[in-house]
Design a protein around this nucleic acid. Structure first.
Length: 414
RNA sequence: GGAGAGUUGGCUGAGUGGUCGAAAGCGCCUCCCUGCUAAGGAGGUAUAUGGGUAACUGUAUCGAGGGUUCGAAUCCCUCACUCUCCGCCA
């Protein structure tokens, strides 16, 4: 949620910043709602004040045994006016809240201006593309079985078997241990989240259709960002204890509504996938620094796994709803002959903190924290990147040395 | 699933119709005292938000929502959550 004060103070600046990300702020609606709000709020509060004073007087008269009839009539009038104005005010406030919840974060000034992903900026490339493989991961190994998953659940699921299932487990361990080494505390969290949590991180109310909802009014988490960030919902943290660094491995569940026909084959886009998430809660001065650090933590995994990748700075038209600044990491996918997203690292500034009430206590009082997160990494995509980049036509794949502590035999049967 | 108890400020915890934004203690801040430390003394210390250039001042908030009442932390109803016991269960 953006700060309503920014809208009151300088709506034109906010509107033009939001326009760069393709959001058209309805200035007329805001100005009208704000004008009505002000008048009604002043009226309601003044009536409440009157009632309070007169009620005290009423109590006095009563205790002195004096007549209260006239006073009661007066109070009744005030109450009637109050009831009317208050219901009008509540309606306005609700409209205003809906209006505010719909507004995305304001892009950071450093975010390149652009319309869509074509305007994203490649920041750096790492690792040489050595593979000349053109074979897709499903054709490389029968140990990723999507037909079987259709029987068990439906499309956009996968069954992993034998060595490939074991590889996934090894990757998870490597990623978690690397995160812990980099100072993140490991969490095991619920894979379902309530409405408050999902509103806190920004998935609700606007993106409910992207989520799986259970019969118990809980939602399956679309990313560990949700539980990890909400660990600190409604908390006040001493500035000296920042940054808070959390990590968790969880499955992620996404309905992929509206992505029909995209990436229908293989592990790229699934209803369920494993991910290691990094989350940081920082002071507002420090969040861009922290984002760089977190991005480096994610890149480290790709370097350990010897996978070629590039870092892309997303433009204003492509950053997510809650983000003010995002770097994507894209890994080389030989069968597609292009880089594909394997991590997305974002600074949310105080957007989530404001929704989730995450505060910092410093020398100059209390302020909203800044939250940052990123994947390190999406495990399914990492797995197929390893298979595809290391496939040489034989019936085995030699795994990168970094996995040695987690898998006894680096020669994988496919 | 059955029965019961509970939800008050950063924390513990009092408070059954008005003078309660709320006792007390802890914690925290400032000052005093004491050669350090510990102990002691005085004062201060919730959040959100409106109006105002400001000084200042209004309002709301005792889990959430509704009701009764001139007036609700307090009475009534609904809901959420937490805990205990029983049952079931990995």
């Amino acid at each position: 949620m953006i700060n309503i004060k920014n809208l009151r103070d300088d709506i034109d600046t906010v509107a033009s910043a939001l326009a760069t990300r393709g959001y058209e702020l309805n200035k007329a609606v805001f100005i009208e709602l704000e004008g009505e709000r002000k008048v009604l709020q002043v009226e309601v509060e003044s009536l409440q004040s009157d009632r309070k004073n007169l009620s005290n007087e009423f109590g006095k008269l009563k205790s002195e045994g004096k007549d209260t009839g006239e006073l009661k009539n007066h109070i009744d009038e005030i109450n009637n006016a109050l009831k009317l104005n208050d219901s009008l005010l509540q309606a306005i406030l609700e409209k205003m809240n809906t209006f505010l919840l719909d507004i995305p974060n304001i892009p950071h000034t450093s975010t390149p201006v652009g319309k869509n992903e074509d305007d994203n900026v490649v920041v750096r490339k790492h690792g040489d593309i050595l593979s000349s493989n053109t074979v897709d991961h499903l054709d490389i190994t029968s140990k990723i079985d999507t037909d079987l998953a259709v029987k068990l659940a439906g499309s956009r699921f996968a069954v992993l078997k034998g060595d490939v299932a074991k590889l996934q487990r090894a990757l998870i361990s490597l990623m978690l241990d690397t995160a812990i080494k980099n100072g993140y505390e490991e969490y095991y969290v619920p894979f379902m989240a309530n409405k408050d949590s999902l509103t806190g991180t920004g998935q609700l109310p606007k993106f409910e259709e992207d989520l799986f909802k259970t019969t118990e009014n809980l939602y399956l988490i679309p990313t560990a960002e949700v539980p990890l960030t909400n660990v600190h919902r409604d908390t006040l943290t001493e500035i000296g204890k920042l940054p808070l660094k959390l990590t968790s491995h969880t499955p992620c569940f996404r309905s992929e509504a509206g992505s029909y026909g995209r990436d229908t084959k293989g592990l790229i886009r699934q209803h369920q996938f494993e991910k290691i998430e990094l989350v940081q809660v920082t002071h507002d001065d420090d969040s861009m620094n922290a984002l760089d650090g977190l991005l480096g933590n994610a890149e480290e995994i790709l370097q350990l796994l010897e996978l070629p990748y590039q870092v892309v700075e997303l433009c204003t038209g492509d950053i997510g709803f809650s983000s003010c600044k995002t770097f994507d990491i894209e890994v080389w996918m030989p069968s597609q002959n292009k880089y594909r997203e394997i991590s997305s690292c974002s600074n949310f500034s105080d957007f989530q903190a404001r929704r989730a009430n995450i505060k910092v206590k410093g020398e100059n009082g209390k302020s909203f924290a800044h939250t940052i997160n990123g994947s390190a990494l999406a495990v399914g995509r990492t797995l197929i990147a390893i298979l595809e980049n290391r496939y040489d036509g034989s019936d085995t794949i030699i795994l990168p040395k970094a996995l040695k502590p987690y898998i006894e035999d680096l020669t994988l049967s496919i």
